[in-house]
Write a protein that binds this DNA or RNA. Structure first.
Length: 943
RNA sequence: GCGGGGGUCGCCCAGCCUGGUCAACGGCGCGAGGCUUAGGACCUCGUCCCUUAGGGGUUCGUGGGUUCGAAUCCCACCCCCCGCACCA
């Protein structure tokens, strides 16, 4: 950190400039960003989202608002615990992540086996980097989501939600890790991302007194079944399942019992025992031989598969393995296999009668261990499912589409009593902890009932009433509200708050983060030890957040004063509702929508959020940022490399709205050098400035600054941060540069007021430099507490703007001419239009604009010898804005303007520029061009 | 598949809502010049094609349409990114 940065941080801190308390009567802005999850250090992505709120906070403060921007840390959840456990187990990749990516010293990593330590370490380093970046945060309100007071707050919230009937219990299949004893979401998996529980059909084949149970996704193919596969190497079990005697793989028993089936094992045996026996299929009553299939995975489904060689590439390949002797089978089994021919029951365009055979050929598959079988299977299943038709060989299904046949088959099978269901994953899923996952049916799971139509309607009204920035995001919110179903809001493991009425369950991490912005009012008192966490009983919180109950008796129960309790309620009432909550767009489908739902449920309408901001995701050098790709950029690393102001400005300039940002080192360096050259530029400019009266050019600069102030203000209100920063920094700078170049003697007083405004415009983005600049300019006090530039000090001067536009246009035309003309170029004659032409132009343009008869005007000025088309064309060319300015400033002195600028134009063009007025006596006009001059379009002639 | 956002002159990107001032802002890169002992930084000019007078031609994913006029409006299509849940 540079000494300058350190200095200003110290000043802001000493003067408590970012520690607001309620100021009744003063307008307020309460702005928030989701607390970051502390399983790692904050990174450039966190910064990109948070800095938008930081800019907005500083902007609003300068506009005279009492601004509260608080911060907190998310510890709730199982990821922190999971990482800690993996480290403990000796997982080197986790360790490397800590050390190499996050930059944690070895001696600290040792202590990360304690999850709380891990989180507290990252909290410590993250807090410091946010402070060093100069965020205008009120740290008095900081908390962690595992703090006792916060737990009390979450308990209160869930008690009230349950009373409202929004928390309900239900049963649900989940991907389950038996080691963690917890559902395993996508992020928790090392294998099998995107897999979710699928419902398989169970079909029972009679084998003596047993039901040999096969699992399938294609029950309609029962009509094409030719045999049954079991893996001779695997262990199978006889067991009583839901009152019947089943035979399935031993591993399937566990899964069945986890899926609410009543399972009592009887005995187990090797798969070989089943080989060569016959089992009877339902519906067709065919006796099918049981054959050895080494491709059968016992830990998938029931470990029993019925074979449909016409339509399943695996089955056909395995059958041929036996028939052609690649797989050793017993003599009986071999004979049984030899008698089997594929039995087609589905026809598909583009395939022969036996699609499986086509697929084997097409993929060059030789045996049942071929890796290409996976793809071949997908292909055949897909085509059959979408385009297949059941043939007459499929009995009652014949003529149906496959999709219909499937439903019909289920119905028929169910009627025989030889049908069941089982949840399964179609691909292998492995938990980060290394354990293979399966589907468990969770009972008595607690849900937030987001499917409730009344709740949905209310949430929708929250969004309708809120300002959503950018506006495009609103449609996404609305479709999310429609789509959202019940959300499991509690789980068994990880850090967090227990459900008060069912302490087996811990409130899930997204579900405890919905209305916590309200807690920032209270946390100030808790941190200041003005109220004890254990006294925060639900009734007291009802008063704090809802104004319900009697503060006198509540304060007594809480062991504090009535005034204290009233103060806390006042604090909440002052700051709430949230004026802006900003997050990255991937939080729309969950957090931000939950935020709307819960406010709708718990708070009266006046406390619903007023503003929601959404930004894009961040990429690094054009690629998605990830720890494994090695392009992970921590906030700390970026800050140290580019300095606080450079880092902030670079983030500001990288993207707007919901667009994804691209973090480029080069761009950040550029931003830094821009910030750093501001003050030298200002000093140098002031040194060469002169004391003189204001002229047209000074008026122009003030007018331009007026436009910039408007642009920055509007962009900031709309959270168009990139646009705002570009206008504040770059465009304003360009205006000043133009002024300096254009003016022979830049005026000190003009520069002083312009620089003063410029410093303020830049202050939200580059606060350190802005403070320095403010001091350099002799400003008293702190710029972060100064007023936003006032438009009154920068009057619009259309005449001056018009004058500059005319000069710029003349220069542009002259450059074009100089570019194409070869030949003499020592002198450029510029002819301003004559009074007659000018009068003609004005009247014609005015007539055209008003839609009046132009012919009359043309006839009146026929002596000007200018075709009206030229005038109309020019009108378009200059644009309605400039044209209107011209027509309303009838006394605009074009000749005077250009004549005064002739020296400047000579310098710019490198030729001597002579400005003359057409029609005045003694005009030198060797090319006889003067007559062609029009207002805003002087004629040119090069000699 | 469903939902959301996008495809602009080498690259990044503005413009699109409210059609004409759009060959199209700004930044990067590149070229020329200035400054400097030199380099860097900084400043100026140029950077679709053609053009010996400010002009012309062809462009804004593709194909149609509306209009005197379309990057901007309408329709169809193609392509890219993101989300799709027990997870922060």
């Amino acid at each position: 950190m540079s000494p300058r940065e350190k200095y200003w941080l110290g000043v802001w801190n000493e003067r408590h400039v970012f520690e607001p308390d309620p100021m009744p009567g003063k307008k307020k802005a309460f702005v928030t960003v989701p607390y970051p999850y502390m399983n790692g250090p904050v990174h450039v992505g966190t910064a990109f989202t948070a800095v938008r709120v930081e800019f907005y906070a500083r902007f609003k403060r300068m506009q005279g608002y009492n601004v509260l921007f608080p911060w907190a840390w998310h510890w709730t959840g199982k990821s922190i615990v999971g990482m800690s456990q993996r480290l403990k187990k000796g997982d080197q990749s986790v360790r490397r992540g800590f050390v190499e990516v996050d930059g944690v010293p070895e001696r600290e990593v040792e202590k990360f086996v304690e999850p709380e330590y891990l989180a507290s370490y990252y909290t410590k380093v993250s807090r410091q980097v946010i402070k060093d970046t100069g965020f205008s945060i009120d740290w008095r309100r900081e908390f962690r989501t595992v703090d006792p007071a916060y737990r009390k707050f979450v308990e209160w919230q869930y008690l009230r939600l349950r009373e409202l009937g929004y928390v309900v219990q239900g049963t649900h299949p989940v991907v389950w890790c038996p080691f963690d004893k917890s559902p395993t979401g996508d992020a928790d998996r090392s294998e099998g991302e995107g897999e979710s529980p699928q419902e398989f059909s169970l079909i029972k084949f009679h084998l003596g007194e047993w039901a040999l149970v096969a699992a399938t996704l294609r029950p309609e193919t029962i009509y094409g079944a030719t045999n049954i596969w079991v893996n001779p190497e695997e262990e199978y079990s006889e067991a009583r399942v839901d009152g019947e005697l089943w035979v399935v793989s031993s591993s399937a028993l566990l899964r069945l019992s986890e899926q609410k089936h009543e399972v009592t094992p009887v005995r187990s045996f090797k798969g070989t025992e089943l080989i060569g026996r016959y089992a009877v299929a339902p519906l067709t009553d065919k006796s099918l031989p049981v054959l050895p299939g080494t491709f059968v995975d016992a830990s998938f489904g029931t470990g029993v598969v019925y074979s449909v060689p016409a339509h399943a590439p695996y089955d056909l390949a395995a059958l041929r393995d036996i028939q052609e002797g690649r797989l050793k089978a017993g003599r009986d089994a071999k004979e049984m296999a030899d008698r089997i021919v594929p039995l087609p029951i589905i026809s598909v365009d583009g395939y022969s009668q036996v699609p499986a055979a086509d697929a084997l050929r097409g993929h060059g598959i030789k045996d049942s261990m071929d890796a290409a079988l996976e793809a071949a299977t997908k292909e055949v299943y897909g085509d059959e499912f979408h385009r297949g038709v059941m043939t007459s060989a499929s009995g009652p299904l014949s003529g149906m589409k496959v999709t219909e046949g499937k439903a019909k088959a289920v119905q028929l099978l169910d009627g025989t009593g030889r049908y069941g269901r089982m949840w399964e994953l179609s691909e292998k899923v492995v938990c980060r902890c290394g354990t293979r996952c399966y589907v468990k049916v969770l009972e008595n799971q607690w849900f937030l009932e987001y499917s409730n139509p009344e709740w949905k309607a209310k949430a929708r009204r929250v969004i309708d009433k809120a300002a959503v920035r950018p506006e495009d995001a609103r449609a996404w919110f609305n479709s999310t509200i429609d789509w959202l179903g019940d959300w499991p809001c509690a789980r068994r493991s990880g850090m967090g708050t227990k459900l008060p009425w069912d302490p087996e369950w811990i409130v899930e991490t997204l579900s405890d983060s919905t209305i916590y912005m309200a807690f920032y009012s209270l946390s100030k008192y808790v941190n200041g030890e003005k109220i004890a966490p254990e006294s925060l009983e639900p009734e007291l919180l009802d008063y704090v957040f809802l104004g319900k109950g009697n503060p006198a008796s509540l304060s007594k129960a809480a062991g504090t004063t009535e005034k204290r309790v009233r103060d806390i309620h006042e604090e909440f009432s002052y700051w709430y509702p949230v004026d802006l909550r900003n997050s990255a767009k991937e939080l729309i489908p969950n957090h931000l929508t939950f935020f709307a739902f819960h406010h709708a449920a718990l708070f009266p309408e006046r406390n619903w959020p007023r503003g929601i901001g959404v930004n894009g995701m961040i990429q690094v050098e054009g690629k998605k940022m990830s720890k494994s790709k090695g392009n992970f950029v921590t906030w700390r690393a970026a800050l140290e490399k580019h300095g606080a102001d450079g880092f902030r400005l670079a983030l500001a300039l990288t993207a707007d709205g919901m667009d994804d940002a691209d973090w480029r080192d080069r761009a950040a360096e550029d931003a830094r050098s821009k910030v750093e050259s501001v003050i030298p530029f200002v000093k140098e400019s002031l040194r060469s400035a002169a004391k003189r009266d204001a002229d047209m050019l000074d008026a122009w600069l003030l007018s331009s600054v007026h436009r910039r102030i408007v642009a920055v203000t509007e962009a900031m209100e709309g959270l168009r941060v990139r646009r705002a920063a570009a206008a504040a920094f770059l465009n304003t700078w360009n205006d000043i540069r133009h002024y300096l170049r254009r003016s022979e003697h830049p005026r000190a007083q003009t520069l002083q007021v312009v620089f003063d405004a410029w410093a303020r415009l830049m202050a939200p983005f580059a606060p350190f430099m802005a403070e320095d600049l403010n001091r350099e300019l002799g400003g008293k006090g702190l710029i972060c507490q100064a007023d936003w530039p006032s438009l009154k000090d920068f009057p619009v001067d259309e005449g001056a703007e018009l004058a500059e536009a005319v000069v710029a246009k003349a220069l542009e035309d002259a450059r074009k001419v100089l570019k194409v003309v070869v030949g003499p170029r020592s002198k450029l004659n510029v002819y301003v239009s004559s009074d007659l032409t000018r009068q003609y132009f004005y009247e014609l343009a005015a007539a055209k604009q008003k839609g009046e008869d132009v012919g009359q005007v043309v006839r009146k000025y026929s002596s000007a010898k200018i075709p009206p088309d030229r005038v109309f064309k020019l009108m378009y060319e200059v644009g309605s804005e400039t044209l209107t300015k011209l027509l309303t400033h009838g006394n605009f002195d074009e000749f005077g303007t250009l004549d005064a600028a002739s020296r400047f134009m000579s310098d710019e063009l490198g030729v001597h520029v002579v400005v003359q007025k057409a029609g005045s006596p003694g005009t030198r006009d060797p090319g006889s061009r003067a007559k062609d001059a029009l207002p805003l379009k002087p004629a040119l002639f090069l000699e």
